[in-house]
Design a protein around this nucleic acid. Structure first.
Lengths: 223, 223, 223, 223
DNA sequence: GATGAATGAGGATTCATTCAT
DNA sequence: TATGAATGAATCCTCATTCAT
C-alpha cells in the first residue's frame, strides 16, 4: 500500500492523504458547484457536503469553516491556472506588443473562467462587507499581484502607486467583462471582443507615454 | 398628536397617507443605511425596521418583502437622480463632444453615489444569483435604458444589438469604477480620472466610425 | 387596556409587557425546570423553549443567549428571595446570637432552595470553566456580598480581607450543605441540622475573639 | 523500534501490553490536562486524543467512552494517592488526636490536589446530572469509604447511618475547601488553614461525646 | 396603522463514536 | 494496533415573515 506521494526531503509528511486528499478535492469540487449555483452567501456548508455526498461532519474534518473552503478553492484555482497557462505567459508574453498581450491574457482567462465558473464567484466575494476577509482578499490579491507585475514591466518608469492603480483598474475591467459574459452567455464572443477593446484602449496610451521607443503609437493623449 | 409635517403641494391628502408616506421614506432611509453597512444579503428586515425605529410588523405594512424594499429604494434613487440631474443631461448633453459628455455624466453620477452609497449596493445586488430577480433587474435596467438612449444618439446607424452591447459595457465599466472608488476611498479622485479615461477611450473610437460628421474626432480630452 | 405597571416617574416605560412579560416569566420557569433536570450545560435553549411551549425563536426575542437566561433567572431568584425573606433578616437578625442567626438564615434559605431548585444549579454554575462568566459570578457575587455584610457586622474589627475570606468560606459551606441535601433528599432534616452545626461551630469561635463581651464562648482556640 | 520502557517487576508482559499500557497512561495524562483546562463536559474526546498525540480511534481502543476515561483516571489518582500517602495514614493516623489527624489528612490531600488538579474535577463531576453515573460515583465512593473508615474509628459507638452522614459532610466540607482554593489560588495557605478550622471544629464535638476515653478532648489545635 | 410576539425551518459548527484501511 | 475519515444528530442562534392585539 504505497503512498502516492513522493517527497524525498520530507521525512514525515503525514500520510493523511489517500482517501482524505480525495475527499478534500471532492468537497472543493462540490463547493465550486454550489458557489456557482447559489453564490457564496447562498452556499450552505450542509449543501456543499450534500453535493459532495458526505455528511456535514466530514466537511469540517477538512475545512475549519466556510471561508476556509473559499480560500482553498481559490488556491486550487490559482494553482490550476498556473499549471495550465502559467509558464507560457510568465516570461514570453511580457515582450509582446500590447494587443497580442491582451489576447494572450484575456482569451485563456476567459476560457479558464468558462470551465471554472467558481472563479467568477471568488473574484467577487460576498456582497456582505465584513465577510470579505481573508478568503477573497487572498484570491483577489494573488491575481492583482500578477497583474501588477505585468503592468510594471510595461511601465517601468512609473511610480509604484500608479502601477498599482492601473493594475487595479485593469483587474476591475476584467471583472466587469466577466460579469457581462456571465450575464449574456449567448453573446460571449462579442463581449469578449469588446472587453479586449476596452483593455487595449485603456492600456495602450499609458504605455506610449512611458515607452517612447515605440514611435507610432496611435493615440497621443496630450500633444 | 398632531403631524409635524408640512407638505404645501399636497394640501390634505389624508393624514394617513401623509404619515404613511413618511414611514415608507423612513424605512427606505433605514434600508439605505443598512444596505450600505452590511450589504443586501447581510441586511435583515428586522435590522432595517430597528434602524427606522419601527417594529418589523410595520415594515411589512409598507413592503411585502425584503426585495420590494430594494425595488422601491432603487426607484427612489432614480427619481432623486433625475430630480437633481436629469433635466440638464437629458437634452443638452447629447450634443456635447464625448470628452465633455463623459465628464458631464461621470462626475455627477459619482457625486451622487458618494452621497447615496446605497446606489452602489443596488447596482450590484446580492452575490446570490436567483435572488437577483426583480429588484436589481429593475434598477439596473432603468439605468441601462438611459445609457442606451445616450449611446444610441451617438451611434445612430448602429444596430440595436450593438448599441445595447456598448451600453452594457459602458455600464459595466462604470460599475467597475464604482467598486474601485469604494475600495480605495482615499484615491477617489485618481480613480475617478482613471475611470473617465477608460470610458472615453472605449467610446471614442466607436463614435468616430459611425459619426463621421464630427470632423475632429481624434480625442482631445481636455483642450 | 391599562398597563399593569405603575411607574409614575418613568414617562415611557415601553409597554412591551402584557404578553411579553408573561412569556419571559414562562421561559424563566421553563429554564428553571430544565436547569434543575439536566443542569446548566445540559440545558439546551431548544429544550427550554420546548418546555415553555414556544418556538426557539421566541426564546431569543427575550434573551440574547443561554447565559442571559441564567443571569435573569438568577436575578429573579434573588428578588424573590428578598421579597419573601429580605426585610426580616436585613436588620433584626444582625443583633441575634449566632445560633439563632444561623437558624434564621439557613432554614429559610434551604426552604427557598427546596422550592426553587434552580437556586442550587445557579450557585454552582457549569463545570466548564470559562463559561462561568457573568451569569454565575453575578449571582454568586450578590449572595456573597450579603453574607459579607452580615459577617462584617459580627466582626467589626477584622480586616476586610479576613471578613471576605470568612464570608467565602461560609458560602462554600452552605453550598456544600446544599449539595448534600440534594444528594440525600431523604435525609434532608438530618443534613440540615448538620449544616447548621458546621456553620455554628465554624463561626462561633471567630466571633468570640472579636466580641470579647460574650464571656462564656465554649471553644478557646489558643489558651 | 525498541521500547524505551523498563518495567523491572513485569519481566516481559507482552510488548503490546507494555505499549498499550503506555498509551493508556498517555491518554489519561491528556485527559487530566484537558479536564483541568475545560472541565469534564467541556472536554471532548477528540481534544483528549489530540492532547495525547493520538487519533480519536486509538482513544476508543482503550476506553469504551468518555466516562470510562474519567473512571480510569479516578482509579489511577486513587492508586497514586495510596502509593504516595496511603500506608502512612492507613494505620498510624487513626490513633492521632483530631487536630493532628486533620493536619495529617488535609495537608497531603491538598498537596496532592495541587499537583493533580484533575482530582478536583473528578470530585465534582459534570454539572449535568444523569451523566454523573458511574464515573463519579465510583471515585466519590472510594474517597467516601476511606473517610467513613476513619470516622468510624473515631465514633465506634455511633450508628452506621450517622457515621456515614458525618463522613459525607466531612467530604463535602473538604470539597468546599478545594473549590475555595481553586477560586483563590493566591490565598491558598489562608484557605487551607480555614478549611482545617472548619473540619476540626465540626468534628471535635462529635468525638468528645462518643469517645470519652480520650480525656482531654477540648481542642488543642497546635500545642 | 402600529406593535412586538411568534414562528420554524435553516445555518454554521461540534462531538461522541464507529469504520475502513 | 493505529490512523484519520466518516457519521449524523444536536447545539446555539438567525431571519423573513405572519399574527393577535
Amino acid at each position: 500500500m504505497p503512498d502516492q506521494e513522493q517527497q524525498p526531503a520530507a521525512p514525515k509528511p503525514r500520510r493523511r492523504q489517500a482517501r482524505g486528499e480525495r475527499r478534500a478535492a471532492q468537497l472543493l469540487d462540490a463547493a465550486a458547484t454550489v458557489f456557482t449555483q447559489v453564490g457564496y452567501s447562498g452556499a450552505s456548508t450542509n449543501a456543499i457536503a450534500r453535493e459532495a455526498g458526505v455528511s456535514p461532519g466530514t466537511l469540517y474534518q477538512f475545512f475549519p469553516n466556510k471561508e476556509a473552503i473559499a480560500v482553498e478553492l481559490g488556491g486550487r484555482l490559482l494553482e490550476q491556472w498556473r499549471a495550465e497557462n502559467g509558464q507560457a505567459l510568465s516570461n514570453e508574453n511580457l515582450a509582446l506588443p500590447l494587443a497580442e498581450m491582451v489576447d494572450a491574457m484575456v482569451d485563456p482567462l476567459l476560457a479558464f473562467n468558462h470551465h471554472n465558473p467558481a472563479f467568477h464567484v471568488l473574484m467577487h466575494g460576498p456582497d456582505t462587507p465584513g465577510q470579505v476577509t481573508d478568503a477573497f482578499h487572498l484570491f483577489h490579491g494573488a491575481v492583482l499581484t500578477r497583474i501588477e507585475e505585468i503592468i510594471a514591466s510595461y511601465l517601468p518608469s512609473s511610480p509604484k502607486s500608479e502601477v498599482s492603480r492601473v493594475a487595479n483598474m485593469t483587474l476591475a475591467l476584467f471583472k466587469a467583462g466577466l460579469d457581462l459574459i456571465a450575464a449574456h452567455p449567448d453573446e460571449r464572443v462579442e463581449y469578449q471582443r469588446e472587453l479586449k477593446k476596452v483593455l487595449f484602449r485603456y492600456l495602450d496610451p499609458l504605455l506610449c507615454v512611458s515607452a517612447p521607443e515605440s514611435p507610432d503609437s496611435p493615440p497621443q493623449q496630450s500633444p
